[in-house]
Design a protein around this nucleic acid. Structure first.
Lengths: 212, 212
DNA sequence: ATACTTGTTATACGATCTTATAATTTCACT
DNA sequence: AGTGAAATTATAAGATCGTATAACAAGTAT
């Protein structure tokens, strides 16, 4: 007699652990944001992108802001890992490691309009949400800390002085972010290789004692 | 017999020239964006902020995107004018003029979370709207052009070389924008005076031939 | 097999959004 | 004063949004 009453047409589905589902939803959110920017931040769109119903987002995250914050954390972590991996894979001299950092920063994986688009949405939220701001501060300090290490090693290795490594790392970060922003908003303004050269020039200024 | 049939309570109003009204609406839009970020971009909120009804926006701008683009133009123009005025008011030596540019860039008028908030919203739109992208490109090239002039004058005056002035101006712009972004997202990360110092350090690197 | 936990679907409600359209008032001009 | 153009209000229609709630089903343990 037929099979176990496949109710009036309710959709089949299979369960996932909360951890897996949360990540799927976070990644779907990122895809939506890449595609539509701020307009992509919507329970319905994200649920559709993930192939589930809206209630699931409420169930796993309570409110949508939590999902977005979670997506932000995923993305931050992923990018930082990519950067650190490139550094780790480089020859272990301070110069090569810093070069590797610069090169991967301008590689298509990171120097990308879609990636910036996600970031821009996050920035907008950080300015108005304490929850997002907290995530951003943690992420930023990890990022600056990594650069601090690279610059400090280079200075020690080559024997030049830096008055304030933390501030120098902040400047280098700002330069990278600013170039990334400018290029993504208008890819015709300069070429990625030119951006890399400008970063190397910045380091050359450091080397020549402009920050001592 | 009474007066001219003051209809059943329709609101009084007074007309303005399209030009004035457009500007009022544009400025109301900016205030809304400052207050609520992307969430502030809404016909209803902007109309309320301006003290008019929604239909007026449709009437003057057709669709809301046009209003936002117009607000973007107002804002760009205003900021650039502030910068150029500070330069014009400075003593007419290349060094003083560049210093003035740096100083005003980090003054509370420009180095401000509200201002960045507006910009972030615009960036988000630029990435997804050709109309906004066109405005941004024009604005960006004006900005970089101004810096190009300042840097070129300094190099000529002091007799040091710059391989590519345009690229150097792009880097300096990126540094300014990056510092602005970082500080607004997290004002605890560094002090505006430190940001100014980092800009001067960058110029010192230029002076020492790091970009030659 | 049966029951239980909970991940998941389904659905509804109220708010807000954009855009379109019609009615009305203001103001400049004759 | 009266007329006409258009700036402005008023209102409605249809989408979409976020969240709450209840029913259902999948998988685990008993």
């Amino acid at each position: 007699m037929a099979r176990k009453v496949v109710a009036k047409g309710r959709a089949r589905f299979h369960r996932e652990t909360p951890e897996d589902r949360r990540r799927q939803l976070g990644e779907a959110a990122l895809r939506c944001i890449v595609k539509h920017g701020n307009a992509g931040v919507s329970v319905r769109q994200i649920a559709a992108e993930a192939g589930v119903t809206q209630g699931l987002i409420t169930h796993h995250f309570g409110e949508i802001n939590e999902l977005v914050a979670y997506a932000f954390d995923i993305m931050s972590e992923g990018l930082l890992q990519s950067l650190l991996k490139a550094v780790a894979d480089a020859e272990p001299t301070p110069q090569k490691r810093l070069d590797a950092f610069i090169n991967v920063s301008f590689s298509p994986m990171l120097f990308d309009r879609g990636v910036l688009g996600v970031w821009v949405v996050f920035w907008g939220l950080v300015l108005h949400s304490p929850r997002m701001s907290a995530s951003q501060q943690g992420e930023y300090s990890n990022y600056v800390g990594a650069i601090e290490g690279l610059l400090g090693d280079l200075a020690a290795d080559e024997g030049f002085g830096i008055a304030d490594i933390r501030l120098s790392a902040i400047a280098f970060t700002a330069l990278l972010d600013g170039l990334w922003l400018a290029w993504c908003l208008n890819p015709a303004s300069f070429k990625p290789e030119e951006g890399m050269q400008l970063c190397r020039n910045w380091v050359e200024g450091l080397r020549r004692g402009a920050y001592a």
